[in-house]
């Protein structure tokens, strides 16, 4: 029989292995950020940000894609926010746990798991074709808003639940109605958490590709209204890279994508921490 390894020795070996695997994983993240930054940052100039793509993106900047991304974020949030926050308020303030809330929650969780390609198919079949909205920021925004719903519902619900119950009791004891209590006491206290959900939604709009290609299309024109087709930064990057149109511009776009996502996630994280601090 082989000699048994001393448990403490074994622990030391395992610990070293686990730490190196963790280091490797975190290394990947930093490598991705550094690689894209080193290749992409030199491309980013004021002109790159403020001029429209020329010749399918071979030269010129990415202005129209930035505008399209912003429009898309706006439409998606304008739809998803009232729906998601309203749903979360209902689930936390107006009902007790019941079969109904279980069904709603289960549906919301399933929706969160639907892959973007299926969202894209649906958006295409429903908004683009059946409702006749065509490839447009509106079609894309509505599809994206469905995608954002679960996140917004979940973060809002969690932050509403973190508001101390006593505050509601006090408000009710002063003869204040439920809805007034929600708007004057609960929502203000839950605000940072709600903002976190919204910020995560913005990040999702920036990084999404499959849904956008199917619903917003990939027109490079500067969109003038929500009924116009357009191309978001992520789609632009995908097309530049996949068709090999312009590597420098692809790296530049990727750097912008990564940096904005990084910035957005950090601010979401910061907001969440502020929120925790306030509650505790």
């Amino acid at each position: 029989m082989a000699k048994r390894i001393n448990p403490l020795m074994l622990q030391r070996i395992v610990k070293a292995q686990l730490w190196s695997l963790t280091g490797f994983t975190i290394g990947i993240l930093f490598f991705i950020i550094f690689f894209i930054s080193i290749k992409g940052l030199p491309q980013i100039t004021l002109e790159f940000l403020t001029s429209n793509p020329v010749d399918m993106g071979r030269s010129g900047g990415i202005f129209s894609t930035i505008v399209c991304t912003l429009y898309l974020i706006f439409v998606s949030l304008m739809i998803a926010m009232p729906l998601g926050v309203g749903a979360a308020i209902y689930l936390t303030e107006y009902t007790r746990e019941s079969r109904l809330t279980h069904i709603i929650r289960f549906g919301t969780e399933c929706l969160a798991g639907i892959p973007s390609i299926i969202m894209g198919l649906f958006g295409f079949a429903f908004f683009v074709m059946a409702l006749g909205l065509g490839w447009s920021i509106l079609s894309g925004g509505m599809t994206m808003s469905i995608m954002l719903l679960p996140t917004i519902i979940r973060t809002t619900e969690e932050s509403i639940k973190a508001v101390p119950y006593e505050l509601r009791e006090v408000s009710f004891s002063l003869g204040v109605t439920r809805w007034q209590t929600v708007t004057k006491v609960v929502l203000p206290s839950a605000l940072p958490g709600i903002v976190t959900g919204i910020v995560l939604g913005i990040a999702r709009c920036i990084e999404e590709t499959a849904v956008i290609i199917f619903t917003v299309g990939s027109s490079l024109r500067l969109p003038e209204s929500f009924f116009d087709s357009g191309r978001t930064m992520a789609v632009h990057f995908y097309i530049l890279a996949r068709e090999g149109i312009s590597m420098p511009n692809a790296y530049g776009t990727a750097a912008i994508l990564i940096l904005s996502i990084l910035f957005i996630n950090l601010s979401a994280y910061y907001l969440a921490r502020q929120f925790l601090k306030k509650i505790c």
Binding site: P164, E166, L167, E169, V170, S171, F172, S173, L174, G175, V176, T177, V185, P188, S189
Partner: peptide, 18 residues
């Protein structure tokens, strides 16, 4: 709500609104 306006309440733990 009208009843609670007429009948006020103070709780065992002071709960100031934030």
């Amino acid at each position: 709500d009208r009843l609670r306006k007429r009948v006020g309440m103070v709780f065992d733990k002071p709960v100031p609104l934030p």
